[in-house]
């Protein structure tokens, strides 16, 4: 009998878990503006930080930000070191097998090639990409020669130094760099669509949190505040909901 009561208590505890759990730890990379980055004050900042804080406020949760290396961001989530990943992560089938995603809070984002001249032949040559990104995978599957670097900065430096003919990355990451380069860097060819939009990653067993976040995202989509945030961080041309 005692055992039964305890089990019931445990189940009851689980049922109220999402509501009782007032601190949600949000994992991000902190190195991918405008999605997420470390600002001058040394704090995390960016589109996803503003979005995450608003979602938590709507869901009545207290959120804390955790910066984690991109390589181990999913293993640390499934191991329970934080509760969500909100780090510009595209929803892909292979990721979806291991973790769950909320509905997307960004439309599929365009990727683009950048080089020193706007010459379409360049993207057939040597193309730099960051290691373990969907971009590296896409270049590997194309006819170009893939050059993988461990950080996005090195991919840009490789194009500037002539090591690579072009770099392939998220367009939102490239736009500020092209703007700031004063004409040195330029986009090559058309944008490419990869992935199925960006969503928040949660553990598959954590359905309560997923439902809470889904509801909060829906409410932000409905009242237009999500679109306002997208325009603020990604500009007028970004695809809206």
């Amino acid at each position: 009998m005692k055992k039964l009561i305890l089990t019931t208590a445990a189940l009851a505890l689980m049922g109220t878990f999402a509501a009782a759990q007032d601190v949600v730890r949000m994992g991000t990379e902190g190195a991918y503006p405008p999605y997420n980055f470390i600002n001058d004050a040394g704090a995390v900042d960016g589109f996803e930080i503003e979005l995450g804080n608003e979602l938590c406020a709507r869901a009545g949760l207290t959120c804390e930000w955790v910066v984690n290396d991109w390589d181990s961001i999913i293993p640390n989530l499934v191991s329970g070191n934080y509760d969500t990943i909100i780090a510009g992560m595209s929803i892909t089938d292979e990721r979806d097998e291991v973790i769950d995603f909320t509905q997307n809070y960004l439309q599929p984002q365009p990727s683009a090639y950048v080089g020193l001249t706007d010459d379409a032949a360049l993207i057939e040559g040597t193309v730099a990409a960051q290691v373990s990104t969907i971009h590296a995978g896409a270049v590997a599957a194309s006819g170009a020669t893939l050059l993988e670097f461990s950080t996005p900065d090195e991919t840009i430096a490789a194009v500037r130094g002539g090591e690579a003919d072009a770099v392939f990355a998220d367009k939102d990451y490239l736009v500020p760099l092209v703007e700031a380069s004063g004409g040195e860097l330029t986009f090559i060819g058309e944008d490419v669509m990869l992935g199925g939009g960006v969503g928040m990653g949660v553990r598959e067993s954590d359905t309560a949190l997923k439902d809470t976040m889904n509801a909060a995202i829906t409410s932000m989509k409905e009242d237009g505040s999500l679109n306002a945030l997208i325009v603020k961080w990604f500009g007028e041309e970004a695809p809206l909901f």
Binding site: D71, S72, I74, P75, V78, E94, R95, V98, I99, A128, V131, S132, A140, T145, L146, L147, E148, F149, E154, A158, E163
Partner: peptide, 24 residues
């Protein structure tokens, strides 16, 4: 040093699989 055409060392492939399977 950059990896050309996914021809890397043992750690490169181990990371590749850890990244694809999400199981280190």
């Amino acid at each position: 040093f950059p990896v050309v055409q996914q021809s890397g060392d043992a750690l490169y492939y181990a990371r590749y699989f850890a990244d694809k399977t999400f199981n280190p």
